[in-house]
Design a protein around this nucleic acid. Structure first.
Lengths: 369, 369
DNA sequence: TTGTAAGCGTTATCAT
DNA sequence: ATGATAACGCTTACAA
């Protein structure tokens, strides 16, 4: 079930030009006459000297620590500006044993969903001076683990992870690190964890209920990627159908392939060929539904008359499909923002009153159902 | 013309929980009995001790420096594994004045194009042990400058930038840093720079030529975002039309709004309303073309009979549109890979034989033209 | 081939 | 409120 391990950052040798390309030794100018720079960049020492204060005062002034007299702080800031001083993050991280970094792991960048989530996270973190590291796990637990191991080495202030699907080893590393962590997107199995999302299970059920309310009787679920969230949506869908006495196990089409428009069209074709009596389909992802709509048009299958098509996530293009795609809109922007804010609180040592935040979802009924 | 400056990372105060949330002073356990860890993480010293060698030998062994006896190296690696040692990147960067990091700036993550480019870059860099920092400039020169300033502070080994559109100040910083840099996507104005891409100008011309060859006479160009590359494509298109005596300046529709499916449909509608005699449209981006195709279907405009529609970039969904979208396929995967490889060479101090690499483009004719 | 010594640029700690 | 001093964990330069 688990993909091949393709990334093993922790086992990579550091990039070593000499080893890789044959020792090209460049003559470097002699350096280190005590107090001479090595990087060609002004240091805090120089700022301090120019401002006529000690380095530590300069440090404090630049960090906005209030114990510094305003007059001095002003002088320091000015000196820093004149010199074009920029703090050396490596030195800072080493000395303080903490970085100004937050790491985020998403399962895909190809899904607009996560891009929007990332944007929201950035919008919260950047103004606080926090750097956001973006990791893409490609829906692989092993890559997820590798990314976490790798990021942990950077001593990030906090972690934002997608879902709960994780190797045991990754879980242990997270636990052992003691670094605050917020889980995004799902809620259903986040016992004891800080998470912001919505119930994928209930979203799946909502999909079924909508289709049933539309008078559909033979409904299929189509899922790709098979990540836990997709599976959970399928599970919710199934349970609701069972409850209505409409569940047909042969109408579940699951594939581990990555979700895409092309795949959606293909699966739609297969499904229809195998089950001509089908009258409704719930797709685990909007791009699949887009592909189905397009393929339906090509085949002259009338949507929604013959088959109702319901998508998930409500990607930006969905409202413009023909027919306009009904979909379950997920609040990724809000999730990103709230998750980031929650992490900020945890990073500040505060306890969070509501560690599990349900941001809900919203059925957007358009023309395809 | 230049967007508002929304991100100023270099002016952000570092994240400071005490300042931000009121001084919550946690009692920390006393530390620093010489040789005691502060991070809760094994250090190189401990690995060395366990392997019975000096720290520097351990360092060399772990870095794969060949001068270390294989027996020792083995012992060190084993000790590291047993301890779960992971190098502290901050300490490494500080000591060596260089990180194991490469920074990439793309103008958007919403465009699948750049996601694919990033994937290719990752595929080259990660196996070399290089961390890839991803920056999104949102097509803003100011954000681009801020990202560059910010990343430069990290002493990255190299930089991968998109296009040549940059503030003077950013250019100066890059120059002054002396850090190797490769420019991706465009070629047309990269005099003296290392770049991997294709001629946007020629791609635009190719679009015009194709439409003309299809017998079209009244062709429009529709561009959004108005980044330099889009403009260049429009320019190439225009020149080719002029040469054929078919240029009509009123048939150019440019908007600074971000490219999207919805926008494409809207612009298509406007264009058609204003110029009913139109018989061909070249869209600067496939998502715009998708929107146009969808809108055409909605209005009953026959594509390509009434209007030929040509896209750009050939996004994955294009082949599945109705009708299937003709588009100019751009080799972003190859561009990412080659740019990364070129940067690797520069980082190793090698000079590059072909500093300007034209990866070409390919017209994919499908049903919409 | 291995080790010693000395920083890298910053911040924590403890004085003053 | 400000400063002296000693790390932080690693690598460079040089020595053996």
């Amino acid at each position: 079930m688990v993909g091949l391990r393709t990334l093993q950052p922790s086992r990579c040798l550091p990039f070593n030009p000499d080893a890789a390309y044959g020792a090209i030794t460049l003559m470097t100018t002699p350096k280190n006459d005590k107090n001479t720079r090595t990087t060609g960049r002004p240091t805090l020492n120089e700022v301090a000297r120019r401002a006529g204060v000690s380095p530590i005062t300069a440090s404090r002034a630049l960090r906005g620590i209030p114990s510094v007299a305003e007059a001095l702080a002003q002088r320091v800031r000015e000196a820093a500006r004149e010199l074009g001083y920029v703090v050396n993050p490596a030195a800072r991280a080493l000395a303080s044993a903490r970085s100004q970094t937050v790491a985020v792991v998403v399962p895909s960048l190809g899904n607009q969903l996560f891009v929007e989530t990332l944007e929201a996270i950035h919008a919260v973190m950047r103004p606080k001076g926090l750097e956001v590291l973006i990791g893409n796990s490609h829906y692989s637990r092993d890559e997820d683990e590798d990314l976490i191991r790798n990021y942990l080495a950077y001593q990030p202030r906090g972690l934002l992870l997608t879902g709960f699907e994780r190797t045991e080893s990754a879980r242990r590393m997270l636990e052992a690190s003691g670094i605050p962590c917020v889980y995004m997107m799902d809620l259903d199995s986040g016992a004891g964890l800080h998470c912001v999302g919505f119930s994928q299970l209930r979203a799946g059920a909502a999909a079924a209920e909508h289709l049933i309310a539309r008078g559909r009787r033979r409904m299929a679920f189509v899922g790709a990627q098979l990540d836990q969230r997709t599976l959970l949506r399928g599970e919710g869908f199934r349970r609701a159908l069972q409850q209505a006495g409409l569940y047909d196990p042969s109408l579940e089409l699951l594939t581990p392939q990555p979700s895409s428009v092309g795949l959606g069209g293909e699966l739609f074709g297969q499904l229809l060929a195998a089950h001509p009596q089908l009258d409704g389909i719930f797709f685990g992802n909007d791009d699949l539904a887009h592909g189905a709509l397009l393929e339906a048009m090509r085949r002259g299958v009338r949507i929604p008359e013959q088959v109702a098509v319901l998508g998930f996530n409500d990607l930006p293009a969905s409202a413009f499909m023909v027919p306009r795609l009904s979909s379950i809109h997920t609040p990724r922007e809000a999730i990103g923002r709230r998750a980031a804010e929650m992490l900020l609180a945890l990073m500040a040592g505060q306890s969070v009153a509501e560690p599990v935040q349900d941001m809900g979802f919203e059925l957007r009924v358009r023309e395809s159902t």
